[in-house]
Design a protein around this nucleic acid. Structure first.
Lengths: 139, 139
DNA sequence: TGACAAAATAGTAATCGTTACTATTATTAT
DNA sequence: ATAATAATAGTAACGATTACTATTTTGTCA
């Protein structure tokens, strides 16, 4: 029952996320928003990200690296994590119910969903020199 | 080049893990080993778990909940996480290369592996009363 | 307009899972 | 047995995230 009020910071966070297709972490978002709002706090970034996720406007992506990534694309799709640069990319495959059915048979209970994250070396990294490995800021 | 030396604690940790099929967390392992070794430290548990994983004797399982789970079964297989009791169960399906190939086509780069975690309600929970939801100690 | 209520903020402290450090103890080769 | 070194318990540090609080911003309504 709490009415939502506008905030520039929230708008800026959502707008920034729309410009990125690599599923940045809260910290990366924080550092980018700080260019426009130098004293935004990390807590504000986290609070707005989970608020937006609660509204269904963004998704929280867990890819098994123990850190939350954020995605402005809320249509169902899989992800790919580059082992070299760490970026998360979208995989445009339609999530399959067959997988759930297979698992359901194997387990003998109802399987309602699954998390699928691919890994390998992305196009950029496979053409780049190995020296470029540590571009951590793009995580 | 460091020679491995025997330790009772390590043996106990590995033996305990073999008795469990629900992929316990370090904390659950710690609390169970403490019954036998009351002043084992959590650090010792973590150190031995990663040592054993390095030796290929156990596996570290990441199922997207941000906590490490440990598995004494090192043969390739998928996992299932019960949304109610939180337990991780094995899914006896042979990991598929077809999935990697599909993703590889969609992305246009080499895909070498994937993480697949199913979710739903396990057999036990679907027959249990909803009051039994919070058996956190089995995580 | 302006004043009030509610929501959002910045800044900071707290929490949780995990890793690192250090002085002591246990294991193993000689 | 002794000496070398790995492993330990205990504790501190860490990084990601959440919680708290006093202040600021937003929206409503007279």
């Amino acid at each position: 029952m709490k009415a939502l009020k506008y905030s520039r910071q929230r708008e800026s966070i959502e707008a920034f996320l729309k410009t990125r297709c690599d599923h940045p972490t809260a910290d990366v978002i924080y550092n980018n928003i700080r260019l426009e709002y130098p004293n935004i706090s990390l807590g504000t970034v986290y609070r707005n990200l989970s608020l937006l996720a609660g509204l269904g406007r963004i998704n929280i992506v867990n890819c098994g690296d123990g850190v939350e990534h954020f995605d402005s694309d809320t249509t169902p799709h899989y992800h790919f994590k580059c082992k070299q640069c760490g970026r998360i990319l979208d995989v445009r495959l339609t999530p399959s119910c067959q997988l759930n059915e297979l698992a359901s048979e194997a387990l003998g209970c109802s399987v309602t969903g699954h998390l699928l994250v691919f890994e390998g070396i992305c196009k950029e990294c496979s053409t780049k020199a190995p020296a470029d490995v540590h571009h951590v800021d793009t995580l």
